[in-house]
Design a binder for these strands. Structure first.
Length: 459
DNA sequence: ATGTCC
């Protein structure tokens, strides 16, 4: 190993890590050349391809490497949270109608977008400029853009490095949810822990209705990851893999392939930001149709949108020296404090950090602690983290039973595929409250608010 | 995660 492993967990959460191969994966990542500080893992860590899900690893940007497996297949898988200004009481009679409308407008599962098919040159613009394209074309507001990581527009994106196959897969997937753990959920703010910060984030108070979107760059990002993992493993260079696991292939950032991957990965990330923003627009339409003039559409706002599968170029202080690093976060969320951000909307407390739970349990809005820069390169968890493999979940849960149980708790469920529901049953995941306590006690991030689900749609 | 197979 070229660096130690550093796992953030509580006594009870560490027991899950002993049960799967994620500890071995933390060790594999630690073998990568030039790894800075440590191969890190968040409390929701679990087994993934190559890197563990919940892993963080950084390398020098100029001299070091980039590893597509350290980002994963769903590039810019991430979360957006939308505030409505409405209370639980305002929507109680229309909860089902609202979710039905959204379900009608936002394709999930294998379904594609019917009304939004882009030409090749339009897709190139999406990949190049992300949310800037969405704002210019009426698919997002200026405020949506301001409240998105990097304004939803990664400048180093290079659409020419995205294969035609990836582009064709993405062509009719903007504004879609997908399947697996992706979802759209109507929630209510259940508890506010930090009233000052929650106000700064744009929350009105306990009981406010909010909407959470969890999706990424769909087939487009998946194809980008597949393309580059294949290119690197077929390059014949025996020095780009030390572990035998091709999902841990790496290349020098400044090599031709390294620069191409970064340009393609950032393009896919821009696509992911636009994907979530278009879903926000569809939510606005659904509110307008459901509440007519009773609701102020301008009040439907993006609280924040951010990625938890991405590699970013960031400046960090390492051994007292400022260095430009490429920080891989796979199933880990950026959580920068106000001190680090210095300017912009959230420079007072830090940017909002959105942490989804599984369906049926709570989700959190958090804020990064300044101590986390030295501890985790400004990172925190990305969710509850799986406890059972997809296969084990399918064997253990029955989708009809899951739906009945959710409805008993007052949670309305719309789904495309029954098997996804069994795969994603709440019992497949760790206890989100436990993960949040571990993150808080490790000084990575503090809870600002806790949300509970009212209605959920899945692929 | 994923047109769950090149």
């Amino acid at each position: 190993m070229n660096a130690p492993g550093r796992i953030f967990a509580s006594d009870s959460l560490i027991s899950y890590i002993r049960e799967d191969k994620s500890l071995e994966q933390v060790m594999n990542v630690a073998k990568l050349p030039g790894i800075i500080q440590a191969s890190m893992a968040m409390p929701d860590i679990h087994w993934g391809y190559g890197f563990p899900i919940g892993g963080v690893a950084a390398f020098d940007y100029e001299e070091g490497i980039v590893c597509p497996g350290g980002v994963g297949y769903d590039i810019n898988c991430g979360v957006s949270l939308v505030t409505t200004g409405l209370t639980l009481n305002d929507i109680k009679d229309k909860k089902k109608l609202l979710l039905d409308r959204i379900f009608q407008k936002v394709p999930a599962g294998m379904n594609k977008s019917k009304d939004l098919k882009l030409t090749k040159s339009e897709i190139n613009e999406v990949l190049q400029s992300g949310l800037k394209w969405a704002v210019e074309n009426g698919y997002a507001t200026e405020a949506d853009m301001r409240n998105t990581e990097e304004n939803g527009s990664l400048a180093m994106a290079d659409p020419e490095k995205v294969s035609p196959e990836a582009i064709s897969r993405g062509a009719s997937q903007l504004g879609t949810i997908g399947s697996g753990n992706h979802f759209l959920e109507i929630q209510a703010v259940d508890r506010i822990f930090e009233p000052e910060i929650s106000k700064n984030f744009g929350l009105t108070g306990e009981g406010e209705v909010v909407i959470m979107i969890h999706t990424g760059s769909r087939g487009l990002g998946h194809q980008v990851a597949t393309d580059y993992i294949k290119t690197i493993s077929n390059s014949g260079d025996l020095n780009n893999n030390l572990t035998g696991d091709r999902q841990l292939n790496f290349v020098k950032t400044k090599s031709k392939t390294g620069e191409s991957y970064i340009g393609a990965m950032f393009s896919a990330a821009n696509f992911g930001f636009v994907n979530r923003a278009i879903i926000v627009q569809k939510i606005r339409e659904a509110f307008r149709e459901t509440f007519s003039t009773d609701v102020d559409i301008d009040r439907i706002r993006t609280l924040y949108s951010l990625a938890h599968n991405i590699a970013k170029i960031e400046e960090h202080t390492i051994d007292g020296k400022k260095r430009k690093l490429i920080v891989h976060r796979k199933g880990a969320t950026r959580a920068f404090s106000g001190e680090y951000l210095q300017s912009g909307n959230f420079s007072k407390y830090g940017h909002p950090v959105i942490i989804p739970g599984d369906m049926g349990t709570a989700s959190y809005i958090m804020v990064g602690r300044k101590e986390n820069m030295a501890l985790s390169l400004g990172s925190t968890c990305h969710g509850a983290g799986r406890k059972l493999s997809r296969k084990k979940s399918m064997e253990s849960f029955n989708s009809k039973q899951v739906k009945t149980d959710l409805e008993k708790s007052g949670i309305y469920l719309r789904m495309v595929s029954e098997s996804t529901i069994a795969e994603e049953a709440p019992g497949s995941y760790k206890d989100i409250d436990e993960v949040i306590i571990a993150v808080r006690d490790a000084n990575l991030a503090s809870p600002v608010a806790r949300n509970i689900p009212l209605a959920v749609m899945k692929g």
